[in-house]
Amino acid sequence: MKINWQLFRRIVNLAVILGVIIWSMEGMNINLERIARGIPSIGNIIKLMFPPDMDFFSRSLSAMMESIQIAVIGTTIAAILAFPISFLSAAKIGVPFSVVFLAKQILNAIRTFPELILGIFFVASYGPGPLAGVMAIGINSIGMLGKLNSEIVETIDRGPIEALEASGSNRAEVFLYAIFPQVLPQFLATALYRFELNLRAATVLGLVGAGGIGVILLQSLQFRRWPVVGMSLLIIIVVVTIIDYTSAYIRKRIT
């Protein structure tokens, strides 16, 4: 008898996935009936948010502005701190292997650390408010910026470096005139991309007291003031969309 191994593998894969799903549903005590009840309740929540509370328009908007400000300053701090690390963790540019390895591991560890937890720590030590949010974002984003930037450094064109060395430039000049102009636009692009993510993070950080529009959401959710929630969400949607498009446009222009 000939066995169709490909079919066999597919069936095994499917069986494993199905098994895992059933195990999860059992464990979380979820059944189709609960799901059937859950979906309409989402619709119900959305209905409760309409019409959004116009009285909260300006307060929500200024809280959203604070979220933007948190993201701007936080991303900038991260970009500055990540800058030297981007070079230390780049292979193939003359940094000793052990340093590169260590720096890469540190970046990985930072990346894995959820920023919301960092937010809680900073709220605990700095007190509630936007500065805690700034610090959480500023520290957490170093991981991703450092990783992406070091990859950019690893792919630079060595030609200009060689040319400047051949003409007797010193290390600082080689860096500023051959390396820096090559990486700067891409560093800016990664920082902008991270800024887009950080703006979302900044809306969430308020839930743990770290400033921004999340604070308004937290309060209005506690008291189930759905129209206020609706107003805040509306502002988040509009502002995030505008900033996403602007940022993506600038990123395209500079790279």
Binding site: I45, L116, G214, V229
Partner: peptide
Amino acid sequence: TIPELLYAAILVA
């Protein structure tokens, strides 16, 4: 545009 955690907070409420 809305992060997962906001969905979670809203659904919890």
